[in-house]
């Protein structure tokens, strides 16, 4: 346990020194804040931007506060997922390529601890960043539209953070399987897109799929409940555990590049 904590502290130090702990939250805050603000000012933006003839009038249905938050989640679902994948794509392959993995793994370090410390750091980073971004969205929604209860926000936050964590876990798994960091990010994104698509096209067949998480989060903030939530959460946790186990096994089999 002490050893795991030492590994985790090193991950934290790297997050701080590589400025990831600054830029990732900033991207999320910008994403989160921009959605309610642009939605609110959309009529004015259009009116001032277009060369429209005098007397053109706009009729926009004013979205409700919860709709704005659900749209924000949509933004996080594309760009946010991309940022999470990019920020953890080199987690294991990077250490292997640079040779630090073979420096560390000849010490009596458990392979599982090595992987899970990276996973925990990824989870911390993505959850903190997303919470800040979603918090910003919530703040501007409250200021520009109307109040939204903390239960809806909290529930959807947890569900969506789980989705981001799941994508990050996939990235770490691919990062232990593939040599190239970019290929790992691409594979993780491709799998997450496939999961989301399959879940929305065939909702009944894929009712258990982690690909439902972003949809569930949006429905939770709008309706305060989400159907079939627990099954999906359970499957996601199991999938993450399996991915980490596989990742540690791959690392044990192939701790460094030239040992392939």
């Amino acid at each position: 346990m002490t050893q795991w904590f030492v590994l985790y502290c090193r991950e934290w130090l790297e997050l701080v020194r590589s400025y990831k702990l600054i830029w990732v939250p900033i991207v999320f805050i910008l994403l989160g804040a921009s959605q309610p603000i642009t939605t609110y000012f959309l009529p004015e933006i259009l009116a001032s931007a277009g060369n429209l003839p005098e007397g053109t009038t706009f009729e926009f249905p004013v979205p409700t506060a919860v709709e704005v938050l659900a749209q924000t989640l949509g933004q996080f679902g594309t760009l946010g997922v991309l940022v999470v994948a990019l920020s953890s794509m080199g987690a294991i392959s990077g250490e292997r390529v640079s040779g630090t993995a073979s420096m560390i793994l000849v010490k009596p370090v458990s392979y599982g601890a090595f992987v899970t410390s990276k996973w925990a750091a990824m989870l911390t980073l993505s959850t903190i960043s997303f919470a800040m971004g979603y918090g910003a969205a919530w703040y501007y929604t409250m200021a520009l539209f109307e109040a939204v209860g903390w239960r809806e926000v909290g529930g959807s936050l947890l569900l969506f953070a789980l989705w981001l964590g799941f994508v990050g876990t996939l990235t770490i798994l691919f990062s232990s399987l593939l040599r190239s960091a970019a290929a790992a990010a691409f594979s993780a994104l491709a799998v997450s897109v496939l999961l989301s698509l399959s879940a929305s096209m065939l909702p009944n067949a894929f009712a258990w799929s982690p690909g439902n998480l972003s949809k569930l989060a949006a429905s939770f903030v709008m309706n305060h409940t989400a159907e079939g939530l627990w099954l999906v959460v359970l499957v996601t946790f199991c999938a993450m555990a399996a991915a980490l186990t596989a990742s540690a096994a791959v690392l044990r089999k192939r701790p460094s590049l030239d040992a392939a």
Partner: peptide
């Protein structure tokens, strides 16, 4: 105790930090 042909380190760590890290990993 192992020294590979080309030792690799975390460039963002100081030499002392790396040693302490290595020592703590060894328990």
């Amino acid at each position: 105790g192992y020294l590979p042909q080309i030792p690799a380190f975390y460039g963002w760590m100081s030499g002392k930090e790396f040693l302490v890290y290595a020592g703590r990993l060894c328990g």
